[in-house]
Computed example of a mutant assay.
Amino acid sequence: MSGMCSHFGLAALVLYLLTVDVLANPRSIPVQRTTRLHPNSIRYNVNNNRPIIGILSQEPSKSMASVSPESVSYIAASYVKWLEGQGARVVPIRINQPDSYYKAIFNSINGLLIPGGGASLVTSGYGRAGSILYDLSIEANNNGDFFPVWGTCLGFELLLYLSAAKKNYLTSCESYNRASTLKFLPDASTSHLYQRAPDGVLKTLSKEKSTSNFHHWCMTRENMTMSNLDKFYRPLATSTDDSGLEFVATIEAVNYPIWGVQFHPEKNVYEWGANLTSVPHSPGAVKAGLYFADFFVSQARKSQHRFSSRREEESYLIYNYSPVYTGNVSSSFLQSYFFY
């Protein structure tokens, strides 16, 4: 008995010393973040180390068309570099194609990036193609086929438009050529996008004007609630425009691997136009911009879509095209790919 008591006494002493140490050094307490999984994500734990992401093209502006008058659509090269820098390859997705083309592309790629730009959400080939691919992604994920989607700026707005049954709840605002901080909302800490982000990235995003904004339309939290879009997406962070209007800057779908940002993370790293006076290029801003690409590519690695053959795959890749210098006509893009 005395031996057992001595063991108990020793255990109590150790517990007491550990308790004193924790109280004296609160940083030694491990911080546990609550993990929140999409319903089907538990099935997708096998990484695809050859991820291919499709980038939706769009109609060129007048200035862009002056570089390539016969082109039907274009993709800014910064989006391509942004994904390639994190280990993905890229397939350009053309506009004004038959539904069968989009179905075939969808079944062959591992994720979809809907980029920013100036195309109409309603009448453009960009909007139509985006709608088809969005519907395919919803159907696939509902059937247990994991497929991630990312929208940047206009792509963010297109996701909101499509998720609201093609009704537009955006509000006019002025956040053009403006660097901003992010104000993280409570759901950010349990989101897929931010819950495992490095502390340095989160600090940069919240303390430094590190997000590059180029938009004239915003989604407010009030409009998200009024439209019931907050049932489909969780707003994770907000920013403010030139007049102090608070707008939603990051969204994550509740039950789907769909994310959108109103800002341009790719510009921090790859765009250096003379008129882009607000684009942040600090070391912290560059790391933050790359974090978003790394996150999305990691999601694309969970998809098992593939082309039917290596030859078919190679025929679709962006390597079949050459980027053109457009910094002399466009204030937004140093290089662009054109498609005919």
Rank of each mutant, 00 (worst) to 15 (best):
M1R: 07
F8M: 15
G9E: 12
A12I: 15
V20F: 09
V22N: 10
P30F: 00
R43P: 00
N48T: 03
S57H: 03
S61A: 08
K62N: 11
S66V: 08
S68F: 06
V80T: 09
G87P: 04
N107F: 06
I109M: 00
G118S: 15
A119S: 13
L121F: 00
L133Y: 03
Y134S: 04
L136P: 00
A140Y: 09
N142M: 07
D145L: 09
D145S: 08
T152P: 02
C153N: 01
G155K: 00
G155V: 01
E157L: 04
E157D: 05
K166F: 07
L170Y: 03
S175Q: 12
S180N: 11
D187H: 11
H192W: 08
R196Q: 11
L205T: 03
K207M: 12
T220M: 07
T220G: 02
M226V: 13
D230Q: 03
R234E: 13
R234D: 14
F247W: 06
A249W: 00
N255K: 15
Q262I: 07
H264P: 05
P265K: 05
K267R: 13
A285V: 12
G289Y: 04
D294C: 10
S303Y: 02
H305K: 06
F307K: 04
R310L: 15
R311K: 15
E313R: 15
P323R: 02
